[in-house]
């Protein structure tokens, strides 16, 4: 008699739908109400951190830095709730992280978004921060992971080697006034060809070689730091870098 059960069960489900619909509509305002209250509480509690996070550097932090605090020490202060200490780290590493991300994303807007994400992730993990590695190692590991993922996700969307002289630079957004600032359009075309080749050849390197070159060439990081970020031995990093530059030397020969 399974069919006898059927209408009953459909009755039950009908009534369930009815109740869930009615509870939803009743609960929604309550939910948003309590969220709003919590937000208020949160923003009151955070007012002083929020002010400290402004452009002005905390003198206490500045003094401590002068007194020889390492980045890890500063990060421990962030962990303890000192948001102005975090602002110090942002100011210190902002430019190099943006530049690093720019050479992975090939787009300045995306680079800034990615750099923001790097700092947000660092900030989010402040409670769990342990100074087991150098702060920059940790910072660049986060940046590398984000950049590699971004590069993988957008590999097919990025127009490499595209040179359109009439349009603003797709990467920097800057307009290109060829006739104005260069002695010759021809020279400018050659310069752009070189630049496109550099980007394309670096981009074409195997992932770890590319990361190593970006850190070594453009971030002036030494073997040991790069090795730590990439979780490789120093000697493996040395040979990785040699192979990468050797490839670049060969492939860019016509431009040097």
């Amino acid at each position: 008699m399974w069919k006898k059960r059927k209408p009953e069960s459909s009755d039950v489900s009908a009534s369930k739908e009815g109740t869930s619909a009615s509870t939803d509509s009743q609960q929604d305002p309550q939910l948003s109400e309590s969220n709003r209250v919590q937000e208020d509480v949160g923003s009151i509690a955070l007012n002083h951190g929020l002010l400290a996070m402004g452009a002005r550097a905390s003198t206490a932090v500045a003094d401590s830095i002068a007194g020889g605090l390492t980045d890890a020490d500063v990060m421990l202060r962030v962990k303890a709730g000192d948001d102005s200490a975090f602002d110090y780290l942002v100011q210190k590493y902002r430019r190099q992280i943006i530049n690093f991300m720019y050479r992975m994303a090939h787009n300045s807007a995306a680079a800034e978004d990615l750099a923001q994400e790097v700092f947000l992730r660092v900030y989010r993990s402040r409670a769990n921060y342990e100074p087991s590695a150098k702060f920059t190692t940790w910072l660049y590991r986060i940046a590398t992971n984000l950049g590699v993922n971004y590069a993988r996700d957008t590999r097919h969307e990025r127009p490499e080697n595209v040179m359109n002289l009439d349009e603003p630079d797709s990467e920097t957004g800057q307009a290109q006034d060829l006739a104005d600032k260069t002695p010759s359009v021809e020279e400018e075309i050659l310069r752009r060809e070189r630049l496109a080749a550099i980007k394309a050849r670096v981009e074409a390197l195997p992932e770890r070689q590319k990361m190593a070159v970006l850190m070594h060439k453009y971030q002036q990081m030494d073997y040991r730091q790069i090795a730590e970020v990439l979780k490789l031995s120093e000697s493996a990093t040395k040979s990785l870098l040699f192979r990468a530059y050797e490839t670049l030397r060969t492939e860019l020969k016509e431009f040097v």
Binding site: R103, E112, Y218, L248, F255
Partner: peptide, 19 residues
């Protein structure tokens, strides 16, 4: 020379709105 060539790839200035 390769290193010098790679120097041509400059990164743009961070936008003033970043902070």
């Amino acid at each position: 020379k390769t290193m010098a060539l790679l120097d041509e790839w400059q990164a743009p200035e961070p936008s003033p709105y970043f902070d």
